[in-house]
Write a protein that binds this DNA or RNA. Sequence first.
DNA 1: GACGCAATGTATACACCGTCCACACGACGC
DNA 2: GCGTCGTGTGGACGGTGTATACATTGCGTC
Lengths: 212, 212
Amino acid sequence: MNPTGERPRSGYHHGDLRRALLDAGIALARDGGPDAVVLREATRRAGVVPNAAYRHFASRDALLQAVRAAALAELAMAMERELARRRTIASPGEAARTGLRAIGTAYLRFARTEPGLFRTAFAVPGEPETSDSPAMAGRSGLNPFQLLSAALDRMVEAGVLPAERRPAAEYLAWSAVHGLAMLVHERTARRMPRAQMRALEQRLLDMVEKGL
Amino acid sequence: MNPTGERPRSGYHHGDLRRALLDAGIALARDGGPDAVVLREATRRAGVVPNAAYRHFASRDALLQAVRAAALAELAMAMERELARRRTIASPGEAARTGLRAIGTAYLRFARTEPGLFRTAFAVPGEPETSDSPAMAGRSGLNPFQLLSAALDRMVEAGVLPAERRPAAEYLAWSAVHGLAMLVHERTARRMPRAQMRALEQRLLDMVEKGL
DNA sequence: GACGCAATGTATACACCGTCCACACGACGC
DNA sequence: GCGTCGTGTGGACGGTGTATACATTGCGTC
């Protein structure tokens, strides 16, 4: 009944209402996407009257932005985990390449396994991902976009990406992966067989590597 | 005051309310995106009481889907225009390549010049674009996705795309272009200089051509 | 040409939403 | 011990989508 385990309420004051509202908002976004994060429902889950939210968030949109930042942070951490999962590779060139691939893989998996959070992170206008507010970042302090940039930098250093192709390369890589992610869970190809989908993801990452 | 030029109302009956509601919905989506197409406002513009809409659309979502179909049809026509604009080319291989490029160019321009309709077409779940309801199609009877497929088919016929790479290639091409389109007008890079943006679009299309 | 039915538009009402305002409670500093 | 200020409450307003019952009228049938 009370999934996060906090007792219903201590007294007149809540204790940490901001956190409770944010958690409720994240849960709503997780299953239902951005439109599902509705202020009154969040307060209901926190066991509090609707207007109490306004002591912590200026508007429904402010809450939504906070949820979005949390979603981006989760994605960043998924990327960091995928990067860490690589075994140490022989050549530095290969290491750099698998780094980029890990970023893309984590992105696509996140879109698959957390469609609601994914849409909340990217289908809602707001502060651009390129800005570095720590709320959007993972443990490394980098947000998803910055993690991608770093991966590309390492490719240049390792000599597997010509320096003259480096500028703005994150936009190309991001575009391709993001487009497929949208395609995957939003529409068409929803009922494409799993194996075929994975193969398509690999081909896309190949295309990026080859075409960058 | 009455942009489409129809007189305010004849009598008790409207004449073509369905069309009027759809037009109003399209106008709302054009500046404001999917969330802006609100049923009551559409009826207001048609000079009719809110519930009248329910004689023509089962729900707000049904209206939204009709608007979405119209947006897809507009995109299809933009693609057809771009295809027709090509001068006749010497080699059939080159013709096939410029065909694919025209599709991508039209897509990116549509996202730029009609952001509201673009988001309505793609940021809202619904019948997949791969289905061929004529409401989503252009003059050729093909919808945007089918136009892309046809362009790829022509590349195989002309011998500029190996047949073994053809299957599912539309997903790769669509992903890249769609991702950039989202990136363009949704977030980051909104204030990127025009020339730089165009250059980026060209590089993306290069990447697709090379990496497909 | 009159009639009746089905299609279309109206009236009223409900639940839900975001948000504003005035007020109640209570933790913390003087 | 008391006042102040941060936090939660109560009530209200205008907006939305939608259900249900009613009014009007165009059109096919006799």
